[in-house]
Computed example of a mutant assay.
Amino acid sequence: MNRTLSIALLVIGCALIIYGVSASTSFSSDVSRFFTGNPTDRSIWLLIGGVVAAIVGIGGMIRGGTPHNH
């Protein structure tokens, strides 16, 4: 994986995690949590997407940092 793409995925993943945490503390999420016991689906998907993107980005950076013997 290209190192630039890995860094971009890591940055996007971190941004999604921050946005997901912010969305999970919003008023609509509080209302949803009051009635269902869970935050909104949007905040959950933002957090999941952020974690996956960050893991893929970190994995690409680790894997891209090793020399290839072709």
Rank of each mutant, 00 (worst) to 15 (best):
A23E: 15
G65W: 10
F35H: 12
R3P: 06
I12R: 00
L46R: 06
V56S: 06
G60W: 09
F34L: 14
G57K: 01
G37H: 13
V52E: 01
T25P: 01
T40Y: 00
Y19K: 12
C14H: 01
G65D: 09
I48F: 06
T66L: 13
L46W: 15
M61V: 08
G13I: 04
D30S: 15
Y19G: 04
G57C: 01
V51Y: 06
T40L: 00
S43Y: 02
G37V: 12
V11S: 04
I12S: 08
S28T: 14
A54D: 07
I18D: 09
P67M: 10
V56Y: 08
S28Y: 11
R33K: 15
A15E: 03
D30H: 09
L46D: 09
N69A: 14
V31D: 03
S26N: 08
T40K: 00
R42H: 07
G65M: 09
I12N: 01
G60A: 12
V56D: 02
P67N: 11
G13M: 05
L10I: 02
N2T: 09
S6H: 04
T40R: 00
G50F: 00
V21S: 06
H68C: 06
F34C: 02
P39T: 12
I62Q: 08
W45V: 06
T66E: 09
H68N: 10
C14S: 05
I17G: 04
A23P: 03
I12K: 02
D30F: 10
I12Y: 04
T36C: 04
G50W: 00
F34R: 12
M61K: 09
P67V: 13
N2G: 08
A15P: 00
I58F: 09
L5A: 15
T66N: 07
I7P: 00
R42I: 10
C14E: 02
G13C: 05
I62S: 10
I7W: 11
F35G: 01
R3E: 09
I62Y: 13
N38Q: 14
G37F: 13
L9Y: 04
A53Q: 07
N2S: 13
I55E: 05
G37D: 13
R3T: 14
I62H: 08
I17A: 11
V56H: 03
M1V: 12
R3Q: 13
D41C: 02
L47H: 05
D41L: 14
M61R: 06
I55A: 15
G20D: 01
N2Q: 06
P39M: 07
G37C: 14
S29I: 04
R63K: 12
T66Y: 11
F27N: 12
G13Y: 04
V21Q: 07
S28P: 01
M1F: 11
A54P: 08
F27Y: 12
A54N: 07
N69F: 13
I7S: 07
D41N: 13
